[in-house]
Design a protein around this nucleic acid. Structure first.
Length: 972
DNA sequence: CGGCAT
DNA sequence: CGTA
DNA sequence: GCCG
């Protein structure tokens, strides 16, 4: 049976390819990869590939104009005739069936939707640049006679030459669906004269299905200082602003998902022409000037006088605060800029290949044109995830129905939540007791079986089927709904089953997801009566947000630019701090500023664990985290500084002006305090806390082994909770990330001080079992006096340098054998690589003498003691423990380096750099000039009680710093 | 306007 | 890029 | 975001 079906399947697919191309159906690039495992009759291995893949192919609906309905119908009849004509050869029938299905797909699609317009490319540029010549050239290159459509005089309908596609993608298979390009498109010429520019710009904002813009410039007029350059830059600047605004609107109906612009440097055949690379740089330079002069003009006219910053921001091209304009700054707005040279006329004929290539790229099909997608996805959440990744925003029809019925929003999409409770299997990590090895491939098999059982019993598909056949509640909303075209995701089985059955089966049973694309506005879709129109006041936005249980942020762009995100609240009340001289505000009345608070480095002042302003500080810490998650490392640094500063202030702050006195605090900080004082909170904090994206990022960020970058990476894959990570990305996690996910909650559980000390005692005891004479200091937060710690930092040292050499593997192995340590997350060689002596990174010790000790191990700890009568398994939770080994001679540096808060550490390093020109790390101090190791603590002799503290104090002294107790280093 | 810990 |  |  399988032997027989195998070649058939191959033929089906080949035939499918052919027809897909013929009829302009878009196949997902991955289809090719997946066909092979499918036809090799290895369903299990293919589901691995498919589990990755997702949407196999989708139909698309553009270019439909090229197929006249009646022609289509006749061709259908033709095919049908062949299909049902009894043929002696089953194979032939099968092939024919395969051929017929795409056609059917096409008709279904055709019926289901309204006509959409041809993709359009705008031709813009200063007059004399050769636009019109280019337009005519493009028309002529298009072999069959072209016609100007009558309604728009400057519009030409063009088609790509058939061979262009293949020729420009030689390295690709012709069948590669990424080659699928709209063969017909509109080219719209716009007036080049300065006075008529706004027409051109109107075209940008008003054209539906805008695929790209070609800005034509005459490369011979772009020399430095030439008028042509200035004019072109001027025009281009304004054009880019228009595009930026359009894209910035984002959720607006017309904004495309991406909008490429080609700067076509024309007349490259002339030797006076500037090379393309130079065209690019000189335009960037000139636009920089234009940008500056425009913003000045704004200021002069009084528009952007500070109180209306938003206004100004809108008219600023590219990245705010950037010195030089670069085209790459437009990527923030999904606008890619390409500069390519060519010539329309010329002795050797026209040379426009690079421009064609660009156009092909711009005209490539994308999923937003599709109405049906087929894939081996059985579950709705997975569909949602894939669509998120493809930036295809749809509203789940089911949730819309609900919305319509309920009238009140608050209809949180249940699907995701439901899945979790329904699918108990999901999210479970295999924990093989005893060794506790993380099962690396466990989830992939689980994934397979899960999806297979799902397709067996129908799962959500059946549920959907039921709901769609149910007598519909006659609500207006729902009726409206049915008129609108939807985007459907079907299981591939629909296709295969249809082929097997020899006829097209109804889609219902295979429908995994049906959603309404959010492209077009449909304000009349649902009645709005829910909560006040928040930002954007876009009903659809909220509907989508609700559907994904992610409020307003659904559309929020999140580029890396600091400027882009800074949640509106930051700029909201930017009024200057108005100085009143009420009693509270009188600087005379403020408590005296302790002298240490004039110090810039936090290592110079005592910072206790708690301050009278803890509440305010905690809010600031939240902003700091938000900065981190938005990849604003400098913002993090800034907030760390000011938090440390406020944390050192021993009085309750009473007025914003009082804040201004503190180092690292300025206007911005004062304003924040004012806001806190008046409202008891900070708007940015509230915003961040209500921001679904930030919630997700924070959750990911809290995974040990996942930093802010990776958190964003996970988010960009469409994952929205840890279950998504486990289900879709487990194998791609690093080992430590897997451990981090596995013990997520346990690692976040605070460790009481007593337990910290207990763990320290165990480590010390075991160390002494190996080599007697070890001394131990618990460093980290516990040493700073925290009643609860996030982890346990144990520092071990031994007077004998031979003892500490290579000791880390010894202690971890022992603890692992005894069962205290369940996992070693990381062995670090930092100190060891230098041969334990922190000496001279410039003159490393000769290797070979066994200098390869590791100086720390980050491990997972679990208490092995429990009541075996009561518990079958060890009920103790896993803890994060760091075991640090330091040689005696630098123990003071080590302890110092491991005891302070982060900001204390940074400031200490900054301090010794500035004041002493030294370089500090926990393995010792070195002179920056010659790299020589500095023995700061050598004067402390002996190794008895209290010597370690003495050594640490010595380091302070040698640095010229006043001693700070560990609990005075709580910089946050 | 460069620098911001190692 | 992650950890400390 | 603040400092020099």
């Amino acid at each position: 049976m399988q032997v027989a079906t195998q070649p058939l399947t191959n033929l089906f697919l080949r035939a499918l390819y052919y027809n897909v191309q013929r009829l302009g159906l878009h196949i997902h690039p991955y289809l090719q990869k997946t066909i092979r495992p499918l036809s090799a009759s290895q369903p299990s291995s293919c589901s691995l590939v498919l589990g990755y893949l997702q949407l196999l192919f989708w139909s698309r609906v553009n270019d439909r104009e090229s197929v006249h309905p009646s022609a289509l119908m006749s061709s259908i009849k033709e095919w049908m005739h062949l299909v049902f004509d009894p043929s002696p050869l089953g194979l032939a029938i099968a092939i024919i069936l395969a051929l017929s299905i795409p056609i059917f797909l096409h008709t279904v699609v055709f019926r289901a939707s309204g006509l959409t317009t041809l993709p359009t490319i705008l031709l813009i540029g200063p007059s004399g640049s050769g636009k019109t010549a280019l337009l005519t050239l493009f028309e002529r290159e298009n072999k069959p006679a072209t016609t100007h459509t009558s309604q728009a005089p400057l519009t030409a309908e063009c088609s790509l030459p058939v061979d262009t596609v293949a020729a420009s993608n030689k390295y690709r298979s012709v069948n590669d669906p990424t080659n699928q390009v709209h063969k017909k498109f509109l080219l719209v010429d716009t007036p080049g004269h300065g006075k008529l520019r706004h027409h051109a710009f109107q075209n940008v904002t008003n054209t539906s299905n805008l695929r790209g813009v070609i800005f034509v410039v005459d490369a011979t007029t772009l020399g430095a200082g030439e008028e042509g350059l200035r004019e072109a830059a001027d025009y281009l600047h304004d054009l880019l602003i228009v595009m930026q605004k359009l894209m910035g609107e984002g959720k607006s109906s017309k904004a495309p998902k991406e909008l490429p612009i080609l700067i076509a440097a024309n007349k490259m055949d002339l030797f006076t022409a500037l090379p393309a690379a130079l065209v690019k740089s000189s335009l960037e330079r000139e636009i920089t000037k234009v940008r500056v002069s425009r913003s000045k003009g704004l200021l002069d006219s009084g528009v952007g006088l500070g109180d209306e910053q938003d206004e100004e921001k809108d008219d600023w091209l590219g990245e705010m605060g950037s010195e030089d304009f670069k085209f790459s700054q437009m990527e923030e707005f999904d606008i890619s800029v390409e500069v390519a040279g060519g010539n329309v006329l010329g002795a050797d004929g026209a040379s426009t290949e690079s421009w064609w290539r660009w156009k092909i790229g711009a005209l490539r099909y994308n999923i937003h044109e599709a109405e049906i997608a087929v894939g081996k996805i059985g579950r709705k959440p997975r569909v949602a995830m894939e669509l998120r990744r493809l930036k295809m925003t749809t509203i789940d029809v089911e949730s819309l129905e609900k919305e319509g019925e309920k009238k009140e929003s608050g209809a949180q999409a249940v699907s995701r939540k439901k899945r979790k409770t329904r699918d108990g299997k999901r999210g479970k990590i295999e924990i093989s007791e005893g060794k506790e090895v993380i099962n690396l491939d466990g989830s992939s098999t689980e994934d397979e079986t899960a999806s297979e059982t799902e397709s067996e019993d129908g799962g959500p598909a059946r549920k959907k089927l039921k709901s769609s056949t149910e007598p519909s509640t006659p609500s207006q909303a729902k009726k409206d709904l049915e008129k609108i075209r939807t985007f459907k995701v079907l299981k591939v089985d629909w296709y295969y089953d249809s082929v097997k059955a020899g006829k097209i089966l109804p889609m219902d049973g295979y429908l995994v997801y049906e959603g309404r694309p959010v492209q077009e506005p449909a304000q009349d879709l649902i009645s709005t009566n829910a909560s006040p129109p928040s930002r954007g006041s876009d009903i659809l936005a909220r509907a989508v947000a609700d559907a994904k249980s992610s409020p307003s942020t659904a559309y929020m762009k999140h580029g890396n630019a600091r400027y882009h995100k800074p949640t509106k609240s930051v700029t909201r009340p930017t009024h200057l701090l108005h100085q009143t001289t009420s009693e509270h505000d009188d600087p005379e009345k403020f408590p005296p500023l302790p002298d240490y608070l004039t110090k810039l480095y936090s290592c110079e002042r005592p910072t206790p664990l708690h301050s009278p302003n803890d509440e305010f500080i905690n809010l600031l810490k939240k902003i700091k985290t938000a900065r981190q998650l938005n990849s604003d490392a400098i913002g993090v640094r800034a907030y760390s500084t000011l938090i440390a500063s406020i944390a050192a202030y021993p009085y309750k702050l009473t007025s914003p002006t009082e804040v201004l006195r503190l180092p690292g605090c300025d206007q911005k900080t004062a304003l924040l305090f004012q806001q806190y004082q008046q409202t008891g909170t900070l708007a940015e904090v509230t915003d961040v806390e209500n921001d679904a994206r930030m919630k997700v990022l924070l959750d990911f960020y809290n995974i040990w082994g996942v930093g802010d970058h990776t958190a964003r990476e996970f988010y960009s894959r469409g994952w929205r909770d840890r279950d998504d990570i486990i289900e879709y990305g487990w194998e791609r996690l690093t080992r430590v990330q897997q451990i981090g996910v596995k013990y997520y909650d346990e690692f976040l559980t605070p460790i009481p001080a007593a337990e910290v000390e207990d763990i320290g005692a165990v480590v010390l005891k075991e160390a002494n079992e190996i080599i007697p004479g070890y001394q131990m200091v618990i460093v980290g937060g516990h040493r700073r006096g925290k009643p609860f710690s996030g982890d346990v930092d144990i520092m071990l040292t031994h007077p004998d340098p031979e003892a500490t050499l290579n000791f880390v593997p010894l202690i971890t192995d022992r603890l692992e054998e005894l069962g205290w340590v369940t996992n070693v997350l990381q062995h670090s060689l930092a100190n060891s690589a230098r041969g334990q002596a922190p000496v001279a990174y410039k003159s490393p010790r000769p290797s070979g003498s066994g200098f390869d000790t590791m100086d720390k191990a980050l491990v997972v700890w679990r208490d092995i003691r429990y009541d075996k009568a009561k518990h079958e398994k060890n009920p103790n939770i896993h803890r994060r423990v760091d075991i640090i080994i330091t040689p005696w001679k630098t123990a003071g540096c080590g302890i110092l380096g491991w005891s302070g808060g982060t900001t204390f550490q940074r400031d200490l390093r900054r301090y010794v750099r500035k004041v002493k020109d030294w370089k500090f790390d926990s393995s010792g101090m070195r002179d920056r000039r010659d790299g020589e190791w500095l023995d700061l603590e050598g004067s402390v002799v002996g190794w008895g009680e209290g010597k370690l503290r003495e050594k640490e104090m010595k380091v302070f002294e040698m640095c010229g710093l006043a001693w700070r107790e560990p609990w005075e280093r709580c910089t946050g």
